[in-house]
Design a binder for these strands. Structure first.
Length: 358
DNA sequence: GATACGTGGAT
DNA sequence: TATCCAAGTAT
């Protein structure tokens, strides 16, 4: 017979732990100080599927450039995309900008303070609506992110695999109700998952809820949350074109407004396919080039891994005369100015690969 | 419900 | 090196 946990998790115990271990984060208000909804919103969008460490510098740069929702709404989308470059999931930046405009134009420059209204805004889903309602406005809300899913699945030993278990986990999470302090409680749940109830080697000895944790009692806490088998990640291949002018300019163009890396800047590239012919000649590879020039294949390739596929790009390189006009839709950009372009990491790799090649 | 959508760090 | 993972959302 398995040992059973003998009590239910006490929300006040978690809040007491939170008060002792509260982390200082760039977007987090000091204890007892009202949070700024704009900062809460901005941070929650940035933290979607993104580590605290990665989001931190971006948050500070955004806040400096766009101190409030009006500043963000008044700026062109391109400004926001440039500041977002490198952070990933670029639809977040597009929705962020759209949301700012909507808040200014339809909500009198104030974020709505209920989950239902927040949910109607672009880029705000179930998690973020609950998080903003609780953290920025102190509303009662069940905030369930990946941390909370892990904490709850262990507390109650939920054996149903993710993501099918999400509704059950939400109900179980909702059963953990503090008597107040909903924002602190939400952050405490997430902090517990981030620092104690970690995916691997959870620090159960330091956990305020180790006693009522069913998985801990069973000794199989690391096996939660259970997950369905993952699918394979295919490799796509293609060609990227690096045209470099003698005076230190490279050819860039803008990607379509939606979809993968939508609205961002790229080095011109052909189609990416799982059935790409790797043995093609330089002439064949140059067929999709943005302009005619002496294209040469550089050794190796620029490799990048996305969530649902890996990418290997052959980098074709050409030196062109200073007077060469940019083709329709493309533009010459000074190498010294690349840092201020909305260039995703994959294209920074292409540039590095091509420019390092002989 | 399944899939598209980035990136960099940890193990 | 391979895999997993991180404060999810939109379609």
């Amino acid at each position: 017979m398995r040992p059973a946990a003998e009590s239910r998790p006490d929300p006040d115990l978690l809040l007491a732990w939170y008060d002792r271990h509260r982390r200082r984060l760039p977007w987090r208000a000091e204890a007892g100080v009202a949070a700024d909804p704009y900062r809460v919103w901005l941070s929650e969008i940035m933290l979607q599927q993104t580590t605290v460490k990665a989001a931190g510098p971006y948050f500070l740069r955004f806040l400096q450039r766009f101190p409030d929702v009006c500043a963000l709404a008044a700026a062109p989308l391109e400004e926001a995309l440039k500041l977002w470059a490198g952070l990933g999931y670029y639809s977040r930046a597009r929705n962020l900008h759209a949301c700012a405009i909507k808040v200014v134009e339809k909500h009198g420059e104030l974020f709505p303070d209920t989950e239902d209204e927040l949910l109607k805004l672009p880029g705000i889903g179930a998690y973020t609506a609950a998080a903003i309602a609780a953290i920025a406005f102190g509303r009662k809300a069940t905030v369930v992110d990946g941390n909370v899913e892990r904490v709850v699945s262990r507390l109650f030993a939920v054996t149903e695999p993710m993501p099918a278990a999400k509704p059950l986990i939400k109900r179980l999470a909702a059963s953990l109700s503090p008597s107040g302090r909903w924002g602190d409680f939400a952050q405490a749940m997430m902090d517990l998952g981030a620092t104690i109830c970690t995916p691997r080697r959870p620090a159960c000895a330091l956990c305020p809820w180790s006693e009522p944790c069913v998985a801990r009692a069973q000794g199989d806490q690391e096996t939660y949350p259970r997950k369905a088998p993952k699918t394979l990640r295919p490799t796509r291949r293609g060609v990227a074109f690096l045209a470099e002018r003698a005076d230190g300019f490279v050819l860039l163009r803008d990607r379509p407004p939606r979809g993968l890396l939508g609205g961002m800047t790229e080095t011109p590239t052909g189609a990416w396919s799982e059935h790409f012919d790797v043995s093609a000649s330089a002439t064949e590879l140059s067929a999709g080039a943005p302009l005619s020039a002496g294209w040469r294949r550089t050794p190796g390739f620029a490799a990048h891994v996305f969530t649902h596929f890996a990418l290997e790009l052959i980098v074709m390189k050409a030196r062109v005369p200073v007077g060469t006009p940019a083709p329709e839709g493309a533009r010459w950009v000074a190498i010294a100015a690349l840092d201020s372009e909305a260039l995703p990491s994959v294209f920074r790799k292409v540039l590095a690969h091509g420019r390092n090649a002989a």
